[in-house]
Simulated scan of single mutants.
Amino acid sequence: MSMNTLKASINTIKNAEKIVVLTGAGISTESGIKDFRSRTGIYQLAPEYILSIDYFYQQPKEFYQFALENLYHPDAAPNSGHVILSMWEQAGKINQIITQNIDGLHQKAGSKNVIEFHGTMKTASCQNCRKIYTTEEILNRLKTLEEFYICDHCETKHKRNRYIKPDFVLFGDTGEWFTIEGINTIHNMINQADCLLVLGTSLKVTPFSTFPQYRRHGIPMIIINKGDTPYDFEEDSFVIQDSIGKTLSQINTEIKEC
């Protein structure tokens, strides 16, 4: 990484008081969780379609088998990147974390202001009565019930209407933040930020990829990601293609010593 870029990033974060953080799978890979699109990612095991709303309704057992094996990581621990973000939030530097991740590691690290834009793997909901099941309950049901994915708390004419869907966003699906009000709330958060910190995301999946467009003119954006993003050459962008935990640790050490 360029020393000038690192110094600029250190000074930016040192002076910032309203940082908004955008995170993707790259911050969780340092906790041993696979990403999706890299050479060792989840989509090397199966096509994207297996995580679509259509596949969920067509093959619910196979869908759950894949999701529970590859997306559920109850024993994963936050890494240094997660921990430092939590520390900066407690210090009053970070206003909001907006994450694509469904693993809950930001909250495990102690961060409070977290928007899980793509939902969570911790729970699942009946699509009819909205009863919430923990993923642990789903695993227990799987062991004892043939149709474990069908809610038994309510009744409908067609069983399909009572399918229990994990509370994360599938392809062809929408989430609670995928509304005009939700998107506008996020746009306003970014517009009020004095620094945008982008960690571990290629910023290629909409609508998440559009969020950096809503920072005010002249507001710095720091991108720490091992791959390229569409925003790498934008004005006031500082790009570091290195480990998130390592880089944030370096920045944090320098801030403490200043």
Rank of each mutant, 00 (worst) to 15 (best):
E62A: 11
F63R: 04
F63V: 10
Y64G: 06
Y64P: 03
Q65R: 15
Q65M: 08
A67E: 05
A67F: 13
A67Q: 08
L68V: 00
L68T: 01
L68H: 03
L68D: 06
E69R: 14
N70G: 05
N70F: 06
N70Y: 02
N70D: 11
N70K: 01
L71I: 04
L71F: 13
L71P: 07
L71N: 06
H73W: 04
P74Q: 10
A76Y: 03
A76C: 01
P78R: 09
P78N: 09
N79L: 00
G81S: 09
H82T: 01
V83P: 07
V83C: 10
L85W: 13
S86K: 05
M87N: 14
M87S: 14
W88V: 05
E89C: 00
E89G: 10
Q90V: 09
A91I: 07
A91G: 14
A91M: 14
G92N: 00
K93D: 10
K93L: 00
K93M: 05
I94F: 02
I94W: 03
N95I: 09
Q96A: 12
Q96H: 12
I97V: 12
I98R: 05
I98N: 00
T99A: 05
T99M: 03
Q100A: 05
I102N: 08
I102R: 15
G104Q: 01
G104W: 03
G104Y: 03
L105R: 02
L105Y: 07
H106D: 10
H106R: 11
Q107L: 07
K108W: 12
K108H: 09
A109K: 00
G110M: 03
G110Q: 04
S111Y: 02
S111A: 05
K112R: 13
N113G: 08
V114N: 00
V114A: 00
I115K: 06
E116A: 11
E116I: 05
F117Y: 13
F117K: 07
F117T: 02
H118G: 01
H118S: 08
H118R: 13
H118Y: 12
T120C: 09
K122R: 15
T123K: 13
A124F: 04
A124T: 07
A124R: 03
C126D: 11
C126M: 06
Q127H: 10
C129N: 05
C129T: 09
C129A: 11
C129G: 10
C129K: 08
R130S: 14
K131V: 14
K131R: 15
K131T: 15
I132R: 13
Y133P: 12
T134S: 15
T135S: 05
T135N: 04
E137T: 08
E137N: 09
I138Y: 02
I138D: 08
I138K: 11
L139T: 09
N140M: 14
N140I: 13
R141M: 09
R141D: 07
K143I: 06
T144R: 07
T144H: 00
T144G: 04
L145M: 13
L145A: 13
E146P: 04
E147W: 01
E147L: 09
